[in-house]
Design a protein around this nucleic acid. Structure first.
Lengths: 223, 223
DNA sequence: ACAAAAGTGTTAACTTTACACCCATGT
DNA sequence: ACATGGGTGTAAAGTTAACACTTTTGT
């Protein structure tokens, strides 16, 4: 084992589950397949790993192609069932990328026929086992959201408390008490009121907040 | 992306970080390299993934070769830096395996020159980046130990509370208060006194406990 | 004026932490 | 008898959970 043994090479790809949060909704970036198999279905962006790049460098390449750079991402699960893709045997290493909605729009522009952002509660038809990949990414985030770093990545610009609460609720899969949520969030002293409010919404306008620039996230935990 | 693109195959291996706990010490299973490079250094057991097996099936093969079967294991990180192995470019998918010390001895017998169990605080010289793999495995366990499942896997047979506490302390990297630890552990009502005690130790003998058979672990959390 | 969503405080239950002395065995 | 490690309870501090009414806007 580890020495003198049968060696076969395999196709290996990195696979990016890129997430953003807009208006309290968690969204995933998907691309549409234009060829068989699964023509017309949606997939996560992927890329075969070449001999001269690491899996992480391969993710960087995916990001560049999308038009993004230096985005936070972390490793997810590996998907390696032999029959998971009908054409070929491919081992896929998933990565979870997080981006704030402003940056996402800057580079992305509008949703087109070829790619788009989809609410994780309302996904289109997904090719291969990529729905499992998305599910597993959300589960991984659930365990991590306690540390708030994730929220700081998803909400660097102005946000409202109800909005950030809804995102937490989606990731955690349960509802939270509004008063308790605000209380805990405020007493962490990580965010500040911008002086502005939302406009043109139904109901009372919400205050807009931003994360304080200087504050280090000392792995404070919520929930 | 995902379609029509440069495709190169890579060597992919699964890599098992198998852990057990004996006498309050967390130990990892290592094998000794008998050939260059890194001759005489120690490595985690690995196996190239073939075309007809998933990464998990490949781990099963590793376990069989060691003489174990149906052991709990979960996925760890992927290590894919291009230059991490001098001979060839290999992408390694790490797995964390857990086993109780009795089962480990049953199959393993004594430590030999070729393989052995090493205290994670006193590792021998390790080849490649496998020390990073071990470190990352412990970190992953640290985040999981809250759920106690891990402890039930590591300690199915008789154990003492000081012993299980020491293992928790090693994995968590901090000391715990003895009284508080016992209190929390006992009030979970997951373990029972066997009626026996340790013998021939220094100091007062410790009571031996076992996990209650029927009890479902309802993701109770400690710490 | 009404509908819709945001904002706000208090209390009780529970959890966590801190802490010091006695006990059972081996030498 | 002494050294070693195991076993035990209580109280204060902190955290979490539950709960209902008022405010600000758009229509």
């Amino acid at each position: 084992m580890g020495e003198s043994e049968l060696r076969q090479k395999n196709y290996v790809e990195s696979m990016l589950c890129l997430l953003q949060a807009t208006h309290g909704k968690v969204k995933v970036f998907l691309m549409r397949k234009t060829k068989e198999p699964y023509k017309g279905y949606w997939i996560l962006p992927t890329r075969y790993i070449t001999h001269d790049e690491s899996a992480e460098e391969s993710v960087q390449q995916i990001l560049e192609k999308i038009g993004l750079e230096k985005i936070y991402f972390e490793q997810g699960k590996v998907f390696s069932a032999v029959e998971r893709m009908p054409e070929d045997r491919v081992i896929s290493i998933s990565y979870i990328g997080l981006i704030d909605s402003v940056t996402a729009q800057l580079y992305q522009g509008e949703t087109s026929l070829e790619y788009g952002w989809f609410d994780i509660d309302a996904l289109p038809k997904i090719a291969y086992d990529h729905h499992l990949v998305i599910k597993s990414a959300i589960e991984q985030l659930r365990d991590k959201i306690e540390s708030l770093d994730i929220l700081k990545i998803l909400f660097p610009s102005d946000f409202t408390l109800p909005e950030i609460q809804k995102v937490c609720e989606q990731i955690l899969g349960k509802t939270l008490d509004r008063r308790n949520f605000r209380k805990k969030f405020m007493q962490m002293d990580l965010i500040e009121y911008t002086g502005y409010k939302t406009e043109g919404t139904n109901g009372r306008p919400a205050k807009l907040y931003r994360f304080k620039e200087e504050k280090e996230l000392v792995s404070t935990s919520m929930f």
